[in-house]
């Protein structure tokens, strides 16, 4: 628990200039959930997401310690950009080599390797939140991408449009369908539930 909120720039500065490990730990603990959730919603595998979270912060350490960090950028968007790129690279690789994934989002291979964590995975505390994440995973790729970039990576719709090579109206349209589809999936118990998802 942080007693006094020190801003990110100050923490980054303490870490780079003084090697303050507590400053780095504060940054990691402050943003681990946000970065991890962003990765997880792209790769859809808890164990791959854990690995990529580690890789993301390892890369961040390398850049920060080597003095190559551009102070003009903010820490969180910068880390999220690293995470996003790693997750997308992994996602594309996995699409070429499809893996078997269980309903809980874990790969069959990872489960075999890390049976202990698989049990942990089953001890899920908040079903509602997990349910929503599961629904996000079911969205078409283009819609999920915009939702994750806007909501979890805090990118503006214009930035998303630029990054994905579409117009801002297309990005907004994908977001709209993503939100409408999520709403539809959430209300599936309703008698008027329409099981079809909007494609785009």
């Amino acid at each position: 628990m942080e007693r006094i909120h020190v801003n990110d720039s100050e923490l980054v500065s303490r870490y780079i200039q003084n090697g303050d490990e507590h400053a780095f730990e504060t940054l990691v603990r402050r943003y681990k959930s946000k970065v991890y959730t962003t990765i997880y919603l792209i790769v859809k595998d808890t164990y791959v997401a854990e690995d990529l979270l580690q890789d993301t912060f390892v890369k961040a350490v390398d850049v920060l310690r080597s003095g190559k960090y551009n102070d003009e950028g903010k820490f969180l968007p910068w880390v999220l950009r690293i995470a996003h790129n790693m997750a997308i690279d992994n996602f594309r690789r996995e699409k070429r080599y499809p893996n078997i994934v269980f309903e809980d989002g874990s790969s069959v291979f990872n489960t075999l390797d890390f049976a202990e964590d698989s049990i942990e995975e089953m001890q899920i505390k908040n079903e509602t939140h997990n349910h929503l994440r599961d629904l996000i995973k079911r969205l078409p790729d283009s819609q999920r991408e915009v939702l994750v970039m806007r909501h979890y990576e805090d990118m503006s719709f214009q930035e998303i449009a630029d990054a994905t090579g579409v117009s801002i109206n297309t990005a907004l349209g994908r977001m709209r369908y993503a939100l409408i589809n999520l709403r539809k999936m959430m209300s599936k118990n309703s008698p008027s539930y329409d099981t079809n998802l909007y494609a785009e």
């Binding site: 780095f24 959730t37 979270l53 929503l132 979890y152 999520l182």
Partner: peptide, 29 residues
């Protein structure tokens, strides 16, 4: 309503992964 749901749907990584990250930083130093 959805936005509030999304805001609270963050997932926690394992403490082992966080420990690995912090250890990497300490070892780097």
């Amino acid at each position: 309503d959805l936005k509030i749901g999304l805001d609270t749907s963050y997932r926690e990584p394992s403490s082992r992964t966080v420990d690995n990250i912090l250890a990497y930083s300490r070892n780097f130093a």
